[in-house]
Design a protein around this nucleic acid. Structure first.
Length: 603
RNA sequence: GGGGUGGUAGUUAAGUUGGUUAUAACGUCGGCCUGUCACGCCGAAGGGCGCGGGUUCGAGUCCCGUCCACCCCGCCA
């Protein structure tokens, strides 16, 4: 090597020099971020991950350096030795280092760069596919560097917090046994066991419970998980969880630990004090008011459940509503105050969205002076009594618009939850990503243990089969499974589920009853969960835990608009990597070694 | 599996009712310039419109198919 690196060591980053450093001789390394060649005078913005510093080349200071600086182009890599000077009257207040510049005495160009496919700057104006194909350049953009540096801080902070609170960082296998149910697994063929497959772990769930059985008391891990499901803005096939499990605690104690962690993260990363404890809400209440179990509490537009009212009025003479009287169906309304305007076109769009979510339509009613309804398919037949009762229940006044949904409970909730969010966006009630605003955390608690699978005509576990039911509900496991609430919880932030967990079943006798309610026989239970069931027989302590979505947490903290912006090397929506070309072809010889045969994909 | 948005120089975009050599900005290249910081000025190169087919005298512009990226439903905690 030359003088730089071997002899001339970096003295500062490109983000730290201030007026206090004026007069010092410094050595900086970095990339050419900007170039302004005035002929006899050249300005270069030198960038590293810490920031940008203006360095200047003048023939009168060092002719050789000035001459060579003429070759510099964007993204060339260079080292400079120079002296820090004040910019005098030319201070750039928009730059952190804007008070100073470095007048260069010596320059070395370490490497040249071809013209990059997009400019390395914060403004994202390239298509995602271009960014992902040149991810190494995308990651060089200061905004992406900030985002990943923040993620690194989050990792460190997480380790410190849990270590400080007596948690052991323990590892669990990625190559695990395939078990049906839950998320689809990525499969890995086994060479040593012909015809058999490992599954990539979709979570360390069972292993962390075994740590509790083994007496490790408190465990955490920042762990990669794999799920072969379709991608979304907030879903990647491999993602990172902060996985936590504790023994001898109840739900409240676990919440306390996690709230402490969240508060520390917001304090250290954003300088924001989260007021504790975090709000709790029953699952049933969340479904009733918002239609889902991850409500965005930053705005209103809450649902009004009219089921009881409509039943009491026996449908109020409206044929459409009579269908909603049967068991399992509900009626909900959403009041749009007269301060919000919705055009005919808006309403058509909303109806289209509703239909997309499974609705038959989107009934509406404009409330008049005397509480009468117009512009409504319901107006003609409804009894005045029911109409007034609905107006009262919704708090509807003249000029307001009521939007209705009725039918199967799950459909109504889904459609109305979607409608609420859609209206929230239209009315500007949901701040854009990264624009600051409120942080509305919420624990959603006490959900039902089982869900009814109508197609299969049986009860299925709403979460997984190892969640502990409320003690007072254990009696209903056989007679009325739908009534059983359990110690499961989700941590929600601004409409995103950022974590979920449960207090686990630690007694095999209760576990057996849960399996019975699910129609899982001994044989099946044994083959799927044998080792865990065995473990419960040998002195399993009461325990519970949670998994926090690290990527979502990083996304929300950094204000990134999607998960890809906080994951260094993410997959596209089709699960491919545009830079490496994964997934790719393999040789037939590799396949035969693994006892795997290809079939032609059907189209 | 389904619905939606988009694909035009390296990049981001504009392209009127289908009509002569497809525009602009940034970037790139060459020249000039000693206080710029979106430097400025002069000049140049660079694409045939994702791909395939069709309609037409004539297709970025219309039709069909297909690929890719993104958003959503299903799926997934």
């Amino acid at each position: 090597m030359g003088r730089f690196i071997d002899e001339l060591k970096r003295t500062h980053t490109c983000g730290e020099l201030t007026a206090a450093d004026i007069g010092k001789e410094v050595v900086l390394f970095g990339w050419v971020h900007g170039r302004r060649d005035l002929g006899g005078f050249i300005f270069i913005d030198l960038r590293d991950r810490a920031g940008i510093t203006q360095v200047t080349f003048e023939p009168g200071i060092d002719a050789a350096a000035h001459e060579r600086a003429g070759e510099l182009r964007l993204e060339y890599v260079a080292g400079i030795r120079g002296v820090v000077h004040s910019r005098g009257s030319q201070i750039n207040s928009r730059m952190k280092t804007g008070e100073i510049e470095v007048r260069v005495l010596e320059l070395e160009i370490f490497n040249r760069s071809e013209a990059t496919p997009f400019l390395i700057e914060d403004k994202i104006d390239s298509d995602d596919s271009v960014r992902l194909a040149y991810r190494f350049l995308d990651l060089r953009r200061p905004a992406m560097q900030r985002s990943l540096m923040l993620r690194s801080q989050l990792n460190t902070l997480t380790r410190n917090y849990f270590a400080d609170h007596g948690f052991l960082e323990l590892e669990t296998p990625f190559l695990v046994k395939y078990t049906p149910g839950g998320a689809r697994n990525f499969l890995v063929p086994s060479r040593l066991s012909p015809g058999k497959f490992y599954a990539l772990a979709e979570s360390p769930q069972l292993f962390k419970q075994l740590f509790m059985v083994a007496g490790y008391d408190r465990y955490f891990q920042i762990v990669r998980c794999f799920r072969d499901e379709d991608l979304r803005l907030d879903r990647q096939p491999e993602f990172t969880q902060i996985d936590v499990e504790m023994s001898f605690v109840n739900q409240e104690e676990l919440f306390g630990q996690i709230e402490g962690f969240i508060a520390k993260a917001w304090k250290e990363l954003l300088g924001i004090e989260i007021s504790l404890p975090i709000q709790r809400m029953d699952y049933d209440e969340s479904m009733r008011r918002f239609g889902n179990d991850k409500p965005d509490l930053r705005f209103g537009l809450e649902h009004v459940d009219l089921t009881e009212l409509v039943r009491a009025h026996k449908g109020g003479g409206v044929p459409m509503l009579e269908g909603a009287l049967v068991e399992g169906s509900i009626v909900k309304a959403l009041r749009v105050g007269k301060e919000y305007t919705l055009s005919r076109k808006d309403l058509d769009e909303l109806e289209r969205e509703a239909k997309g979510a499974g609705a038959g339509g989107l009934a509406r009613a404009r409330v008049g002076e005397g509480g009468e309804w117009t512009q409504s398919p319901l107006a003609k037949n409804i009894t005045p009594e029911l109409r007034q009762a609905i107006n009262a229940a919704c708090g509807a006044e003249s000029g307001d618009l009521l939007l209705f949904q009725f039918g199967r409970e799950a459909m109504v909730h889904a459609v109305m939850a979607n409608l609420r969010l859609s209206l929230g966006k239209r009315f500007g009630l949901i701040p854009a990503f990264g624009s600051g605003g409120e942080w509305r955390f919420l624990w959603v608690v006490n959900p039902p243990l089982f869900e009814r699978d109508e197609e299969a005509g049986k009860w299925v576990a709403a979460h997984h089969a190892f969640t502990r039911p409320h003690d007072e509900h254990v009696q209903y496991l056989e007679s009325d499974p739908g009534k059983v609430k359990c110690y499961r919880y989700d941590l929600v932030l601004n409409g995103f589920e950022i974590g979920g967990g449960s207090i686990r079943l630690h007694r095999s006798d209760v576990q057996a009853k849960v399996f019975a309610a699910l129609g899982i026989g001994d044989e099946e239970a044994k083959s799927k969960f044998g080792f865990l069931l065995d473990a419960l027989k040998f002195g399993a302590p009461p325990h519970g835990g949670i998994a926090i979505g690290m990527d979502r947490l990083a996304m929300l903290i950094s204000g990134a608009p999607n998960l890809r912006d906080v994951i260094a090397f993410p997959k596209t929506q089709r699960g491919t990597d545009l830079m490496t070309g994964a997934p790719g072809d393999v040789d037939d010889s590799q396949l035969s070694e693994l006892f795997v045969a290809k079939t032609t994909p059907t189209t």
